[in-house]
Structure formats: C-alpha cells, structure tokens
Nucleic acid binder design. Structure first.
Length: 799
RNA sequence: GCCCGGGUGUUGGAACUGGUAGACAAAAUUGACUUAAAAUCAAUUGGGAUUUAUUCCCGUGAGGGUUCGAGUCCCUCCCCGGGCACCA
C-alpha cells in the first residue's frame, strides 16, 4: 500500500477545489447565509507568522463545521495593507511600500492558499487599492457631513521616532505602541472622530452582544463610565466659577482646596489677580515640557503651586479655600479641575501632607473621629458635615448634590478618536482648505483622492506628512467656489481602514458604492468573528462605532457588527512570546514542506484550548503527524461488505460525534482532536472496519484536516467533496451504556470498582457493594450511617 | 494600586452542573524488527511505603473552611501571564 504523502495530496486538492469552485458561495441566492469572519492580516512582514496560521485555522474549522451543517458559509479574506506597520517595514527594507507591500501580499496569498481554508478568493479585499480606499474616504466624508469628524488644535501624543501623532489607544505606558519611544506632547491641528458621543451606546450594547466575556470587560473598562456630580466653586471677588467633577459629592465638606490642571483656561483669565504669576507661569512651562511617561514616573512625587491671592468658596460650608495648579490633574478628563478631599483620596492626602494643607475627616467607618495617617476611601457615616452628620455616605451623595444645587454628571474615560497621521502610507484625508470657504469636503464624485507616488516617502517630521512636499497634490481647486485651494496632506489612521472592511467583503467588486444595502443586510451582522484579544479595545471598538454611525445615517438596519465574537489565545514558543527581535518566530513554510498543512493545522489546534492559546514545541508536531499516518493506514482495514454491528464501537462512534460536535461549537478543538485520536486508536485494534464507521470518522476529521480526508473520501469511491457531506448527529439510543463501572467509596474514598448494569437500583447497588470482599474489610462490624448513591457513577458508604 | 485570566506529572495539556485526578499527546527508559539508524510495534513512567502482582498512605501554589465526597465551592495569602492606571 502507498504511504501518506501530504505534499502531493494537498496540492492536488487545492487545485480541485479551485477548479470545481467548491468553496464559492452564491451570495445572492444563498438560503442559509453564514458569515464566518477572521481578522484580516497586515502584511508588514515577508510572510505569514505561525500565529496568523493559528488564528485562521481555528476560524476555518468553525466555518467548515457550519458548512457541513448545511449553512452557506461565506469565509472571505483580505489584507490590511496600509498603515505604519507596513510603512516602517518598507523604510527598514528601503523599498517603496507600493512595491514591497504588494510583494508581501502575494507571498501571504500563496501561504494562505497552502493552508486549505474555505476562502472565496473572488471577494478578496486590499485596503491599499483605490477601489477600497475610495470608500474609506467616502466614510470620512459621511462622518464629516454629520458633524462627527472635526478638526481641532489639541495637545496630542507625538512619537518623535515615527514622526506622527498617535491615538490615545496607541500609547502604552507613555511609549509608542510600535517603537517604544517616549511619547511627547505637541499642540497640533488634528482630525478627530466623535466616538465619545457614542460612549453610552457602546457601553449599553455590551449587555446583550454575544462576545467573549474578557473582551467585553476590556471594552467596558476602556469606556470607563463613572457617575457623580458636577459642582461649582465660586472664586472670591470675581465673576468666575470653577466647575469640578467628583464621584464623591458626599465628601464635599472635607474639600479643603481646589486643584486645576496647568492647561486650564481659567489661569489666563485670572492672570492679573495671581500674586505669584511668574512662579505659576514657570510651573506650567515645566510641566508642559514633561513627557507623558515622565509625568507617570513621578506618580508618587506630586508637585504644584498655589495661585496666591485666589480663593474659592466651598459651597457646602462657605469656607474660603486655596486654589492650586498641579499637573497630576489632567485637563482632558472631567472639567480639568478637582475638589481636593485629602481625608478621603490618597493623592490629595499626599499633596496635602507635602504642602501642609488642612485634612478633615468627613467619612468615618464607625462614626467616630480618627487621626488619619492615610486617606480613607471606603463608605461610612458622615461626620464634620454640618446637618448631614450621621447619615450614610452612599445616601449623602445625592443629598449633598441637591443641597449645593449641583447637577448629577457622568464622565467617560473614552476620548475622541484621533484619526490623522503625518505619514505617507494611507488614504489621504479628503478635505480641501480654501481661503474663502474654509474647510471644504472633497466632492464625492472626485473620489478617490489618490495617494500620489512619492519617491521619498519617509516621514519628514515637523508635523507634516510627506504629501506636503508634492505641489501637484497639494494645489487644487476649491469644490465650492472653484478658487484656489489646498489639500489636506495628512492620511488617515489604519484603524479606519479596518473599521469597515467586513462591510466591503460581500460587495468587494462593487463599483459605485461602498456596499450593496440588500446584500449587506442579508449577510451582516457577521455571524462569527474570531480574532486576537489584543484588538479588544482598538479595532473592535472602532468597528462598533462605525456600524452605529452607518445605522444612524440609514445605510444599514443594524447597529452591532458581530453577532458573536470569540477571542483566541496567544501562541507562545516554549513559554515565551514569539517576536522578531527574539528570533523565535516559527515560519509555517518549513512545516508545510515537512509535514503538510493538515498536520500543522491539527498540531496548532491540539496544543491547548483555542481561546487560551498554547505553547509551540517543535517535538510535539510528530504526534499529529503519526495520527494522520494512522488514519491513512486504517484504510487498509476497511471492508466494504462488512455490516456486522459492534455495539461497543457503535457507542464509541456516537459518543465521539457528540463530543466533537459540542467541542467545535465551543472552540475546544484540542479535546475534539483527542476524542478523534481515541476513536482512531480503537478502530486500529479491530481487524476489519466497516466502511460506514470509517466514513463517519473521516467526516468528523474533515474540518481539521481537509486534504487528507478528501483524498481518503475519494478512495472510498465518492465523487463529491467531503466538505459537502452532512455533519452527523449522534443517535441517543446508541449512546446508552448497558454496563457501567460503579465506583464504591467508603467515607468518600475509592475502595473498589464493579461492573454493573446501568439501571441498577440504589438498594441493589448497596447490597452488591457491601458484599464485595474489599469493602467487607472496611465496613464489617461497623454501623453504616448513610449511603449516597449517584446513578451511573458511584455509591458512597458512610460509616 | 485596580480589573481580567491562570497555577494539575519531566513537558503541552484532560477532568461534565462538586463524584475514579493525570484523558490525549510529547519526552524518557526497556524490548521487538533492522548490519545500523530512522520509522514502526509492544511495555513502563506522580511520590512514598509494603507482606513487591496487593494493599495502604500522600498528592492539583500555601493555609483554613463547607461537604458523605473538593482540582472544582467559600475565606485568607503567595506566585505567574495579560490589560488599565495621578480618570477625581
């Protein structure tokens, strides 16, 4: 008999699938549409990372499973090929991104085809193609026209190495997400999307969407809703007021000073009144110079300067209190000013100690007064709070808010999405600046605003995109007055490209609109989306925002993009993260060659639970290779005439059907594979296997190892692809065990096991148990206090 | 500091709503086949004790608790991974 040679078989079937159009879906006619989506890769390296292969395999198994269950599965793929990742790779390689990224894409495509997924390549999407980014720009225009895109001079995070601004989400520990450089603050005119307007909706919908719990929690924390009150403090002898946001209005009587952030507008307004203006001015300058990470490194050491001669009034007790400027108060959160309650906030406590300010205890856990050595931030009973003394802090929140005539207020951690980038490799933002008309959106019929070829595509710095150095591009006519105008030279954030790509797939080849409404509403929301947990707050939040916007603009009739989302885990190599710098990245090509895609797919899925990730160890891959070999060799035992029923095997096969079905539904591929291995081991023990058993086995294996199962299926005499077979259902009557192993425990410890019939009664089991020799030794001469009987499992005798 | 995960043999990992801990693999050792190696097949592998084929004790990060019975539930603590972080 011939040996298992994966390479030839895999190539053969990939060609057949293509020729027979096995995986092509008729989007218009499909009766049971099922949109199975995986996060598309960014080709910012020469080839696929085994981590990509891991993700795609997991998603593809799910898609193949649904297909065999009778759904019309649409499983598209594409490339997120714009963006800084790709551009930086081009800079490093000193090759123009237009050339290099296309080459990468080609290699990615070849590798993806080797993996044997259900991809329908007719609907491939590439974000760098004008027929895609036309619509990315169109989206920008829709947001602009509805007031959701705006331009604003703002202090933004700037990466001096990437020479561009970063979105709030792209700054990690005060460092650039990509290159680890310390981010600095710059005042620049930038484009923003008003995602904050959707904060409440983005939060609320989390209650009902079927997503991984972890991802939902991450989004919830990122949106960061907090409830409290906005309280106004009058400034003595002036018309000004300082509003502050607090979650603890119950501590208002303990507020002994105010702090405003260095960027607060009021400082300018009060300039003439501040006695120590020079000192204040100096402090503000110093703090602006600090980078974000310097500010956070100095977390313990709080600094500030009092605004001398300025006094505010605590509205609760009319006390005069000093006002400080300090950079631990952020301008971008709340009102940019806080009421300091040193007794009940540790930061305020530290500050008060340092500058010798009054600390008053107003919340007491036991109603008594204490000498505070640190702040008390818990709940308690009010003291030193005038007529509110004695009431509970939770209740006092509302009452004090009312008492000082303040408003209830809600604040979010979420900031508006900064979408402009001073880089080359992205879609130009379709805006024109006209001296007469101001900021004018490009006309929709002029789209795409094509990205010009720029020889020197490196970022120039100084806050300008390389596009600014192309006069032909910059000079244009104002679409409104036809006078001279200048184009916006910034490009948009890559996350904008990826925020809507799943809308484009079904309409990938559509010419005059971003997507077909009818087709979109037939196939979307996406039925199953699988991707990395690392996108929990960036990509996944933006897609939700964009979907809501499109709904509000009546382009679609749903507002959440993904019915079901499941995050997969991280693939590590011998315990550590794979990364280029560590040089431990596994290249799938080596394994395709050596063992074939089926073995690779199965090994990756066998490593551990898909949602938790797993650890790649080179030596382990032999296990799944041996398994597939075993499956291959089992064919020699298949006997076509054989129809003798084997009850034990029947049961095992139906148990396996049940287990594999449930496990795939829950993405527990590792245990599904283990169940298939157990079945294969049992089949191997048989001298002859009926073709019915073998067929069922192949069908169960097909989503995991599509090529070898096709080949063996064909060898069994079938003409059609195994992927068109119907997924089997377990027959309950065959699942029933006739005999079971009954565990006999004495005082909860296992002392014996016996074979009994499955429907044995408690009394019978008990009599049988105590008559066992081993059990006699334990119970003889002792009084049996209790007998616990768990049908089909165990009997426990308590003495 | 806060919020999520997680801690089980030599390793990756199993274990349903509390009911046989270590499935399935990997690795190692021994044996068979072979001139030899690889491959393949068979056996063994948590620790300890023992009357050494037959039974007991201990064992799921640590300690305590609930229960007839705990890897699983509760409390306290330790460690690892990830996310957020001067957010008022």
């Amino acid at each position: 008999m011939e040996n298992y040679k994966p390479q030839g078989i895999e190539k053969k079937w990939q060609k057949i699938w293509e020729r027979r159009k096995t995986f092509q879906v008729n989007l218009k006619k499909a009766k049971k549409p099922y949109y199975n989506l995986m996060m598309f890769p960014y080709p910012s390296a020469e080839g696929l990372h085994v981590g990509n292969v891991y993700a795609f395999t997991g998603s593809d198994i799910y898609g193949r499973f649904r297909k065999m269950q009778g759904y019309d599965v649409f499983e598209p793929i594409g490339f997120d090929a714009f963006g800084i990742h790709s551009e930086n790779f081009a800079i490093q390689k000193k090759i123009h991104p237009k050339v290099l990224i296309q080459k990468n894409v080609n290699n990615f495509r070849r590798q993806l085809k080797n993996l044997g997924c259900l991809f329908d390549w007719r609907y491939e999407v590439d974000t760098t193609k004008p027929n895609y980014y036309t619509w990315t720009q169109w989206l920008f225009l829709q947001l602009f026209k509805s007031g959701l895109a705006y331009r604003k001079k703002a202090p933004v995070d700037w990466c001096p190495s990437c020479k561009t601004v970063l979105a709030d989400e792209q700054v990690i520990d005060g460092k650039c997400e990509r290159c680890d450089t310390n981010v600095i603050q710059k005042e620049l005119e930038q484009w923003f999307f008003k995602i904050t307007k959707y904060a409440e909706r983005l939060l609320k919908n989390l209650d009902w969407i079927n997503w991984s719990e972890r991802t939902k929690v991450a989004q919830k924390n990122w949106i960061g809703r907090s409830e409290g009150a906005q309280i106004e403090f009058k400034i003595q002898n002036s018309k000004f007021k300082i509003p502050v946001f607090t979650t603890r209005p119950d501590t208002l009587f303990g507020c002994t000073y105010l702090i405003i952030s260095p960027e607060h507008r009021l400082i300018e307004n009060l300039k003439l009144k501040i006695k120590n203006w020079d000192e204040v001015q100096k402090y503000i300058k110093e703090s602006k110079k600090k980078t974000e990470s310097e500010r956070t490194e100095l977390i313990k050491e709080k600094t500030g300067v009092e605004l001398k001669r300025i006094k505010a009034v605590n509205p609760a007790n009319q006390e005069e209190i000093p006002v400080f400027v300090a950079d631990y108060v952020l301008v971008s959160y709340g009102t940019g000013a806080i009421m300091a309650v040193p007794g009940h906030d540790q930061r305020d406590f530290d500050f008060a100690k340092k500058y010798n300010l009054l600390i008053v205890e107003v919340i007491s856990p036991d109603g008594k007064e204490h000498i505070l050595t640190e702040s008390y931030t818990g709940e308690g009973i009010l003291i030193n709070s005038g007529k509110f003394n004695g009431i509970e802090s939770e209740k006092a929140k509302l009452e004090i808010t009312k008492f000082v005539k303040a408003k209830k207020a809600v604040n979010y951690h979420l900031r508006d999405w900064l979408i402009s980038r001073q880089r080359y490799w992205g879609p130009p933002i379709p805006i024109i600046y006209c001296k007469k008309c101001g900021i004018v959106p490009a006309s929709e019929k002029d789209l795409p605003i094509e990205l010009p070829h720029v020889k020197n595509f490196r970022p120039a710095g100084a806050g300008k995109s390389p596009l600014a150095s192309v006069p032909n591009f910059v000079k244009t006519k104002c679409p409104k007055c036809k006078g001279p105008g200048q184009r916006e030279t910034d490009v948009s954030d890559t996350f904008l490209d990826s925020s809507w790509y799943f809308f484009r797939y079904p309409s990938a080849n559509l010419k005059n609109s971003p997507f077909d409404k009818k087709l979109t509403e037939k196939w979307l929301p996406v039925d199953m989306y699988i991707g990395g947990q690392e996108h929990a707050v960036l990509h996944l939040l933006y897609t939700r925002f964009m979907t809501m916007v499109l709904k509000d603009l009546s382009h679609i009739n749903f507002e959440e993009p993904f019915k079901k989302f499941r995050a997969h885990g991280l693939l590590t190599k011998e315990g550590t993260k794979m990364s280029k710098s560590k040089g431990n990245v596994v290249n799938p090509d080596d394994y395709y060659k050596k063992y074939g895609a089926d073995t690779l797919r199965m090994y990756l899925m066998f490593l551990g639970p898909f949602s938790e990730g797993g650890d790649w160890q080179d030596r382990g891959i032999m296990g799944t290779y041996r398994f597939l070999n075993k499956v291959w060799n089992l064919r020699s035992k298949v006997n076509y005439g054989l129809s003798i029923k084997n009850k034990e095997l029947d049961r095992l096969i139906h148990k396996t059907i049940k287990k594999v079905t449930e496990d795939i539904e829950n993405l527990k591929y590792n245990t599904a594979i283990s169940a298939l291995m157990i079945l294969a081991n049992e089949l191997e023990k048989e001298e002859k296997i009926s073709s019915e058993y073998y067929s069922l086995f192949l069908i169960l294996l097909a989503p995991f190892a599509p090529h070898i199962t096709e080949e063996l299926w064909q060898k069994l005499g079938h003409k059609e692809s195994i992927s068109l077979e119907k997924w089997p259902e377990p027959r309950p009557e065959l699942l029933k065990e006739e005999k079971i192993t009954l565990i006999i425990q004495v005082n909860g410890k296992v002392r014996d096991k016996i074979e009994v019939s499955a429907d044995i009664s408690k009394e019978k089991a008990r009599d049988l148990a105590v008559s066992q020799k081993k059990i006699k030794n334990w119970v003889e001469g002792k009084e049996i206090k209790k007998v616990i009987f768990v049908p089909n499992k165990l009997i426990n005798i308590v003495i």
